[in-house]
Nucleic acid binder design. Structure first.
Length: 746
DNA sequence: AGAATCTAAATTTTT
DNA sequence: TTTAGATTCT
């Protein structure tokens, strides 16, 4: 545990492996340091080496370094690499995400903001539901002012370190007729009543405590001698305030980042934080890392040429740091429509595969999540394995959230949000009216919903017999499981809970194709639970850390958004959909104007710099948008790529189209398409009757006595047919009357 | 209480 | 086109 007796005389080999700039960044230990690390310049290596260097030179014990990242992945990686350099596991670190570290501090000092140390951390879904309740109670018209809108306003305030008291009336949003601030205050009060904190609170409360409790602040000043920050360009104001408070005094703060890769302003990140660093921290040393070890010269030149169109940069030019940096020009491929684009990408991937390139080195990076579908379909057709990175996270899945809600109620009966989620899942006949009665009693008695449920289940009046018994049964269950917990341990108890509550049975009965996967996920959840000492520890972990660890291994093409691709690299990168409106996104431009355009451009820069050897940009003249074919013109970013590093290709279909029409096509005339020619659309309606088209003659007319399958009710036998209504005796769900189009032959 | 039907809306999402 | 949410029907 103690550092080596003395620093080695010769530079240790971990330093010898660095270039001069990297080494300066590692060895400048005292005072504020800003490391401007361009894409592919060894940022992570600098950060981890610096951390290790602090320990090796005995400047600090592991517990005296505060190291902050944005993602759990980055935190894990840093820990692993520091351990690798030191040749041993390091323990007692304050290394983690802003939120995880915030939570850790807040648990120690929760009472300063009216919480208890065992507060629950709410996820986004809970947050919105709670806010909705608050708005509803205040008589806000939720149609006119949807809760997610106010949630965004509140989050932005929290991102800026503004408690309700700190929001000045002039800063009040006009959301909900200028009542936003008042609603925010009520929402915060509700959180306190529930002993809960949302993600934003983890930093907001912690910063507020550091601001107002000098002895707490002093405690941390004594504790941390050095601060390391990753991805500084993505910090928001409250994170900045938090860091500045903690760094006050010794000023030993080292921030690593790249202003050209700031792409999260819509989440409250303030690029100004990094632009202002030298003013905020006087006497700061700035180190620029510009030697890129990742990409070929043409890729770097194209990316540099593009990003040069942005104003207000700190200024940095990537230089090729590899000896073998020569390579192919960036391809820009013009295509007739989005289907052709997907085909082109598929074909080139097949070619690459035949040429022996591993699929794990190929990525398709899109602006928005929905764009992945077209490529998925194409890859499935071609039989090319792929994975979609990002997307639905493990803990956001319905069955996981339900199971977690059960666990939360088990651990904290007062967790109303969790209770409400599971009270009627599986269906227990406890509908709106029962829930309303629970809320009412809880309000009158100032108790939790669970406590109200106990009372209502026991009292003879207030509820009809059936719901009352169902409720009593559920509450008996919880009493039993809670008693079982210390005896059998959390894993066994939770397993029992999920079985006895009928939750697993619900999915076993479910005939939908996803059901088996959901049961699998529940098993996975239990496995994960087993890795923790206690239920509370696990719930904390889940709220802060749980992510989809979908097997990254294997020979698969990666499909993801540009945002998700930051920090990754691939030999071959496809960048489809570079069209005005899509990329840059019209929505962004409408909201953020010139600033937003620059952020979109940074996103393009991030995309290009993911490629080691080949980048293929493409755009289509026609694209289906929400089901309608729409004409589009190439993205302005394409013109901004320096010509000499780009090779333009027509694309096979585009050429064919030109040949067939004799037209210059979409990209010959200055204003794009003269007439938005629609790609051939299937026109089934013109020949057939509407009925035929709409309901393609039920080839499978269902007759009495047949076995059928229904999405909700599962398998059953038809008892009677009456026009389009069928009476069916379901195996599990009893006899019901359903519409014929909801069943199919079994 | 629960299913069927209608209706708007539609990025990016490290925690 | 797809999807979530609200509304209406049974």
């Amino acid at each position: 545990m103690s550092p080596p007796a003395s620093p080695p005389a010769a530079p240790p080999d971990y330093l010898a492996r660095l270039n001069p700039e990297q080494r300066a960044a590692v060895e400048t230990l005292d005072g504020p340091v800003l490391v401007l690390a361009g894409a592919g310049t060894g940022k992570t290596r600098v950060l981890t080496t610096r951390f290790a260097h602090l320990l090796v030179t005995r400047r600090a014990f592991p517990s005296q370094v505060l190291a902050v990242t944005f993602t759990n992945k980055a935190a894990r990686e840093m820990k692993a690499r520091v351990s690798a350099i030191l040749g041993r596991e390091v323990e007692g670190l304050w290394l983690g995400t802003f939120h995880a570290l915030g939570a850790r501090m807040l648990r120690r000092h929760a009472e300063h903001v009216g919480l208890k140390g065992n507060f629950t951390i709410l996820d986004t879904d809970d947050q919105t539901r709670l806010l909705k309740q608050v708005m509803d109670a205040s008589g806000v018209d939720l149609k006119r002012w949807p809760a997610p809108g106010l949630m965004a306003v509140v989050q932005r305030w929290k991102d800026r370190g503004l408690t309700p008291e700190r929001v000045t009336p002039s800063e009040d949003s006009d959301y909900a007729n200028g009542r936003a601030r008042a609603l925010y205050a009520q929402y915060q009060q509700r959180l306190r009543d529930l002993n809960a904190a949302d993600f934003g609170d983890l930093l907001l409360h912690t910063t507020e405590i550091l601001r107002t409790e000098p002895e707490v602040l002093a405690q941390y000043h004594r504790a941390f001698r050095y601060i390391l920050v990753d991805e500084y360009q993505d910090t928001n104001l409250v994170q900045y305030l938090w860091l500045r408070l903690l760094a006050k005094g010794h000023g030993n703060i080292c921030c690593v980042g790249d202003d050209d890769q700031s792409i999260y302003s819509w989440r409250g990140a303030e690029i100004e934080n990094i632009l202002r660093f030298e003013k905020d921290f006087p006497d700061a040393k700035v180190v620029r890392l510009e030697r890129n070890y990742r990409s070929t010269r043409p890729i770097l030149a194209a990316a540099s040429g593009l990003i040069a169109h942005n104003a207000g940069r700190l200024g940095k030019t990537l230089r090729a740091g590899r000896d073998d940096a020569e390579g192919e020009k960036v391809r820009v491929v013009a295509l007739w429509d989005s289907e052709e684009e997907a085909r082109m990408v598929g074909e080139r991937i097949e070619e690459a595969q035949r040429a022996g390139h591993p699929l794990s080195e190929v990525a398709i990076l899109v602006r928005a999540g929905f764009q992945t579908r077209a490529f998925e379909e194409r890859l499935i057709t071609l039989g090319i394995p792929y994975r979609v990175v990002g997307g639905a996270r493990f803990y956001e899945r319905q069955e996981i959230r339900d199971a977690l809600a059960y666990m939360r109620v088990l651990a904290q009966p007062s967790d109303d949000l969790a209770f409400e989620r599971i009270v009627n899942v599986p269906k227990r006949g406890l509908g709106d009216s029962t829930i309303r009665a629970l809320h009412e009693l809880a309000r009158i008695e100032k108790s939790s919903l669970a406590a109200a449920a106990e009372r209502l289940a026991l009292s003879p009046d207030g509820l009809r017999p059936r719901p009352r018994q169902a409720l009593a049964e559920l509450m008996r269950g919880f009493a039993r499981w809670r008693e079982q917990l210390p005896r059998d341990g959390h894993v066994v108890t939770v397993a029992t809970l999920l079985d006895e509550s009928g939750y697993t049975e619900m999915w076993k009965q479910d005939r939908s194709p996803e059901a088996p996967g959901r049961l699998e996920n529940l098993k996975e959840l239990l496995r994960a639970l087993g890795e923790f000492e206690s239920l509370a520890g696990f719930l904390d972990h889940v709220a802060l850390v749980m992510e989809n660890d979908e097997a990254a291994e294997g020979e698969r093409v990666s499909l993801m958004t540009l945002h998700a691709a930051k920090g990754l690299e691939f030999d071959m990168v496809f960048l489809p959909g570079w069209e005005e409106g899509l990329f840059p996104s019209q929505r962004s431009l409408d909201e953020g104007g010139e600033k937003a355009l620059e952020e979109e451009r940074r996103l393009a820069y991030v995309g290009l710099t993911r490629a080691r050897k080949l980048a293929v940009v493409s755009h289509a003249a026609n694209r289906r948008v929400y089901g309608n074919w729409t004409a589009s013109i190439p993205s302005r970013f394409i013109e901004e790529l320096p010509d000499e590093h780009v090779a333009k290709e027509g694309g096979a279909a585009m050429e064919r189209h030109r040949a067939a029409t004799g037209a210059a096509g979409a990209f010959g005339s200055p204003f794009g398409l003269a007439a938005p020619r629609r790609p051939p659309t299937p026109r089934i309606y013109e020949t057939g009757s509407w009925e035929v088209a709409e309901r393609p003659a039920r080839a499978e007319r269902i007759a009495v006595g047949e076995r059928v399958f229904h999405q909700k009710f599962g398998y059953g036998r038809v008892l009677a047919v009456e026009d389009d209504r069928l009476d069916i005796a379901f195996d599990k769900a009893g006899t019901r009357r359903v519409l014929d189009r909801f069943v199919e032959k079994a």
